[in-house]
Write a protein that binds this DNA or RNA. Structure first.
Lengths: 226, 226
DNA sequence: TCCGGTTATTTGTTATAACAAGTATATCGG
DNA sequence: CCGATATACTTGTTATAACAAATAACCGGA
């Protein structure tokens, strides 16, 4: 077994069209670019991304299988709408899984990682002050998943990602109000402090509160809208 | 709005071919009919179920999106092989999520439900004595998911299902040894007792041990094989 | 103006064909 | 008999066409 060969190993495996479409949709979802309940017609996304029906359908159906998109009885695919019950269910799942990921991450985080996390947090504060919400959302994603990645639990991370995606279309519902009272920022600071102190308990509490607060915000907004 | 019409509502929405193929594959996976690492060629499953490539590919890709199947760089789809790290990761996820589902279920379980669960447990004991493993596996699935269903947390249940499916191909690796020392049966009895007593703590412990034991068995078997 | 039905169009579903890249087989030279 | 090259075959990927069902548009009559 040649160690020289292993170092070249990865190979530039080309991405398939279906995968590219799926990733495009994921990114759009995560950026909150779709409205809750918005329909995603197969031919529409195929035309928008200039591919045929086959990869477009594949991407949409994969996201459905993940639970990120839904379809009604007639096969129309749309971005799911969340009610209070669903948000609360997602909240409980997320608290459980993200605390696990964070706790595990704490044992693996290098000083390098921690430095990166603190920098992202700083950038979040700046984006909050300048009220650049789309940047804020992206940084917030990076902040959390940089931590979770360190858990080295790929299946867990994937499930957490699905949960985030399910809430994706509601993110721009809460973000304009996120920094209003400084609570969101405060919680991130607590997360950072707990990481630096390597305090698992405090980290869990901060993460749980961060999730709970975001979900409460969502619930308030959707019940206000009705 | 006519109340008479509402009572007929549901409508027999016909299943699509892709969905049927996916469910067939899920069932086969859950029954442990596939070997770990076994390849699933698109044309092969299409021919086996007498459908065209399109629905076969759809089903396989949906299961991939769920993380239940995997593909290598060249696109060949296969049943994933688990190593110790993966089993341990799945174990931790499962303990966390299934305890949550069970705890929540405890608040909703009717006497009817409990009766059904006790009956399933009885059937499991019988199937164990007669060493009907495939029946045992199916009953074991029913036992756990009858409990989890009562949580009324559909997204949670779906995630748990995915986790079970990921271990599916290893089930017949452990089941021939399951009842050997009576521990598996004992744990189910403890689950039942905790449910009857409505004791959340005892229920969590029993479920966690049940999962842990099954995973330990798997780890033993696969490390013995290597 | 509103209602009924009819037509047209859109939409999801499935099969098939064409292509490319990988894998197996066979053939030939040493 | 072994190994390398060429050939045939298998496999995943994608586009397209055909079908059916659902939705939208339309239009004439009350």
């Amino acid at each position: 077994m040649s160690s020289a060969l292993q170092s070249i190993a990865p190979i530039a495996r080309k991405e398939t069209l279906g995968t590219m479409v799926r990733e495009k949709l994921r990114a759009a979802l995560m950026a909150g670019r779709f409205q809750p309940g918005e329909k995603l017609a197969i031919r529409a996304v195929a035309a928008a991304l200039d591919v045929s029906l086959t990869p477009a359908r594949e991407a949409l159906y994969n996201l459905m299988a993940e639970g990120v998109l839904e379809a009604n009885a007639t096969g129309t695919i749309y971005v799911p709408e969340l009610d209070t019950a669903k948000i609360n269910e997602l909240r409980r799942i997320r608290v459980s899984l993200e605390c696990m990921a964070a706790t595990e991450a704490l044992q693996n985080l290098t000083d390098e990682d921690i430095k990166k996390i603190l920098e992202i947090n700083k950038a979040i504060c700046e984006a909050d002050h300048t009220r650049e919400f789309s940047k804020l959302m992206e940084l917030n994603w990076m902040f959390h998943f940089t931590i979770y990645e360190a858990s080295k639990m790929p299946m867990l991370i994937r499930i957490i990602e699905s949960c985030w995606l399910k809430m994706g279309s509601y993110l721009n519902v809460i973000y304009p109000y996120y920094g209003e009272d400084g609570k969101g920022i405060d919680l991130h600071d607590r997360v950072c402090a707990a990481i630096v102190a390597r305090d698992a308990l405090a980290l869990n509490e901060a993460i749980a509160e961060d999730i709970t607060q975001a979900c409460d915000w969502m619930i308030n907004r959707i019940s206000a809208k009705t």
